[in-house]
Design a protein around this nucleic acid. Structure first.
Lengths: 217, 217
DNA sequence: TCAAAATTTGACCATCAGTCATAATGAAAA
DNA sequence: TTTTCATTATGACTGATGGTCAAATTTTGA
């Protein structure tokens, strides 16, 4: 049994190494421009070997998403253990999200990628996609839990369904984060250049806005 | 001069026909799966001819985005002429957006596509991208105008910078719409299956949430 | 009518994800 | 140690697709 375990560990390590290599290449070339040939070179493996560990290029990208969502969940779930009211929890979860994305922008791109391809059946049934889904569900659970706590301690209005409110907050956060993200990457959208603001100030403003919106008076 | 004008008209018409054909193919095959060969066939043109009218496949996609954003702006700008307060205007602009996306989901995909590629210099300088940008700026102007009206008629708090608030609302709306959109397409995200909600109810909830957040008491 | 100019075309090219016959490796048997 | 067999790795190859360009076709105007 020992031998199989060692082999399996090696296989897992190889898998992680491929994900690492892919992230390096993405950082060098960009998310779309990364090629399997270059990933193989970076990982010091033959291209064919990549396909022994991943079904497709998409699978590797989903594995990055999986890794990122796991890390994000770890960070967000810590908020639930704090001794603060539910509203504050929701706000701090938003903060965690912000900090995570600022620190790991590549994962944000991976999250968006996941959402853009997940409606195609081929990918949706892969192991990686299922794990991403599970992580997404866990993230939702964290938000909903915070909302429920807030409704109980009277810091959040209970006129919304907690799950629906959770989805709204999740989606809205992602959208605002996306705008801030585009701005950060100093791209060519003049819409964004017109306004003087930072990643932080935008997200802070957003948190304040919805915080007020759901606060029980 | 007459002759040139006729030729120019024909050229424009041909261009529009290619965009139409592309949208047909996208509806048949999906946004990513559409190929230039099939677009050429649908447009009853040689593939090379497509490249006389558009620099690349991306250009055609951006032209779809351009068309969509123009239509959306027309619909949103009508709200500004109504005899209602600024807060109501913002809410109705959100409504217009919702209705537009429900009616023309393909444009929503095109908008997202635009944002995903616009940070690459190659595309950002194309005529189509510049026009998209201009339309985006116009959309922002519409929202900001409504906010300013609201601050003046005391229906909206003036603690935010109107432009920053406009961006927040824009980004957040897009994010919520995206979630609702994924749900509508009955994809595989179990996170979304868990919650019982419709496109409308989610967006309505969102509008209510931020409406309350910015309402002056 | 016809030659020059403008337009259209589809065979061809380059790139890249993914495959598979073959090679290398290493474990077990002799 | 040597041989055999199974597992793992490889990269040349394939198919698909976006984009090009020399040749063909059509239009223009003298």
């Amino acid at each position: 049994m020992k031998k199989i375990s060692r082999k399996e560990k090696e296989k897992l390590a190889r898998r992680e190494a491929i994900i690492d290599a892919t992230m390096h290449v993405i950082e060098k070339r960009g998310f779309e421009a990364a090629t399997m040939d270059e990933i193989a070179e970076e990982a010091e493996l033959g291209k064919g070997t990549l396909y022994l560990h991943f079904k497709s290029k998409v699978s590797i990208y989903l594995a990055i998403c999986e890794r990122g969502s796991k890390l994000l969940n770890q960070s967000m779930s810590k908020v639930l253990t704090k001794d603060i009211n539910g509203l504050k929890m929701v706000e701090e979860i938003g903060q965690s999200y912000l900090e995570f994305i600022q620190l790991n922008p590549i994962y944000f791109v991976a999250f968006n990628y996941y959402e853009s391809i997940i409606d195609e059946d081929v990918y949706a049934e892969s192991d990686e996609a299922l794990q991403c889904e599970e992580n997404a569900q866990q993230a939702m659970t964290i938000i909903v839990r915070a909302i429920q706590i807030g409704m109980q301690d009277n810091s959040i209005k209970d006129i919304f369904d907690p799950k629906e409110l959770g989805l709204i907050i999740w989606g809205a956060s992602k959208g605002v984060m996306h705008i801030a993200f585009l701005k950060e990457k100093k791209n060519h959208m003049r819409v964004l250049d017109e306004v003087e603001f930072s990643f932080e100030s935008l997200v802070k403003g957003f948190i304040q806005l919805i915080g007020t919106g759901m606060k029980k008076l």
